[in-house]
Simulated scan of single mutants.
Amino acid sequence: MEYVPLVSIIVVDYKKKNPYLIECLNAIEKQTFRKFEIILVCDYRVNLDYPKLRQKYFGHYVGPAEKRDIGAKMAKGEILAFIDDDAYPSPDWLKSLVSHFKKSNIAGVGGPGMTPPGVSWQEEASGWASASPVGAGMYRYRFLPDKKQYVDDYPSMNLAIRKIDFEKVGGFDSKYWPGEDTKLCLDLTHRLGKKIIYDPKVIVYHHRRPILAPHLRQNGNFGIHRGYFARILPETSLKPIYFLPSLMLLGLLFMLFVDVFGIQNILIIKVWNIGVVISSLYLLVLLFNALWILRRSNLFQALLSIPVIFITHLWYGVRFIQGFLFTGKLIQ
């Protein structure tokens, strides 16, 4: 028997004039899987006319996690499909994710959030900083299609959850924004013992923060939340890869200190020389990463990726240290 559950698509919006919201809603309307409702939770009322849409607004700012929880309470569907207001789904998005929920051990399904075609060069540069091998590391599958796999942490920009499991763990925890999705996934996989599957066919197109200040602001927020979670939620966040930008930052500061003060200690000089070798290897890896981007984009984006990724790593490293050592709680 064909499995055709009602899917509640939950979109949270926080801008009075959002240039991407209509793009998102129009793409939802074109889904090949037709049994869905749209729940829009926003700060301010938006005048829209979509037959499957219900709207909740507040007239003031409300945090994303709280909005998603409110949307989930309004939902009539068996599956909650969360998507950001600056993203839009591919036509088979719902069709691809629904089939996974036939298995009772599956609590969630995620898929890649690709940079949309035709965006500005600043937005494209931000996208490559996230999607390239050096920019994303082992998490490149979050930004480009990769092999199907189980995951224990996935961002809510493209995440579907079985409603009954969502309710069992208490939904999103607004105390952990940004990063409430990390806490939710931890609860689903460790508390309930359920699985979250990544499917490369569950595609949305997710707009990026343009370089440089908005891009760094967002990635800095990612860094501080990951550092904080590495301390308080080590089950899914205490991983060596998250510490690498901070270690690189500390190494460069050490080398600069040795240079400025002309320290001649033999042991310190040996460590400094090791640092030079590692820095040279890092630069070489950035060059190979640029070649990878060149095959998929153009020479300008390839060359631009070198300083953008380097600066992004440094700033992420600063904010990770802040989150790991000094942050008492995350503030919206």
Results as ranks from 00 to 15, higher is better:
Phe300Pro: 03
Ile196Met: 09
Ile274Lys: 01
Val277Lys: 10
Ser305His: 07
Leu303Pro: 02
Leu294Lys: 13
Ile263Glu: 02
Leu247Arg: 13
Phe254Ser: 15
Ile211Pro: 01
Asp259Met: 15
His225Tyr: 13
Leu283Thr: 09
Pro234Tyr: 14
Pro210Lys: 00
Phe229Lys: 13
Lys194His: 09
Arg296Val: 11
Ile293Met: 08
Phe257Asn: 14
Ile278Tyr: 09
Val308Asn: 11
His207Val: 04
Leu252Pro: 00
Thr312Pro: 02
Asp199Val: 10
Ile203Trp: 07
Ile268Leu: 15
Gln218Arg: 15
Phe229Ile: 02
Phe257Tyr: 14
Val285Ile: 14
His313Ile: 00
Tyr198Gln: 14
Gly262Met: 04
Lys195Pro: 02
Leu294Asn: 04
Leu284Phe: 08
Tyr242Ser: 06
Leu281Asn: 11
Leu244Arg: 12
Asn265Met: 00
Tyr228Arg: 01
Lys201Ile: 04
Pro240His: 06
Leu314Asp: 00
Ile274His: 02
Ser305Lys: 07
Leu303Arg: 13
Met248Asp: 08
Tyr205Gln: 01
Val277Glu: 12
Asn265Cys: 00
Leu281Gly: 12
Leu281Ile: 15
Pro307Ala: 07
Met255Pro: 04
Ile224Cys: 02
Leu249Glu: 06
Ile293Ser: 06
Ile203Tyr: 08
His215Pro: 02
Leu291Glu: 01
Ile293Lys: 10
Val277Asn: 04
Ser280Trp: 06
Asn265Val: 00
Leu284Asp: 00
Ile306Leu: 13
Gln301Phe: 00
Val271Ala: 12
Ile266Gln: 07
Trp315Gly: 01
Leu283Asp: 02
Ile274Pro: 01
Ile268Ser: 05
Leu283Pro: 07
His313Tyr: 03
Val277Pro: 04
Ala302Asn: 03
Val202Phe: 06
Gly227Pro: 06
Leu291Val: 12
Thr236His: 07
Ala302Leu: 06
Val276Leu: 13
Ile197Gly: 03
Phe254Arg: 15
Ser279Met: 09
Leu250Ala: 10
His313Asp: 09
Ser237Val: 07
Phe254Trp: 12
Val276Ser: 11
Ile263Arg: 06
Ser279Phe: 11
Arg231Trp: 14
Gln264Arg: 14
Pro214Lys: 00
Ser280Ala: 11
Gly227Tyr: 01
Lys201Gly: 08
Arg217Asp: 13
Ala213His: 05
Arg208Met: 14
Lys201Ser: 11
Leu216Phe: 05
His225Arg: 12
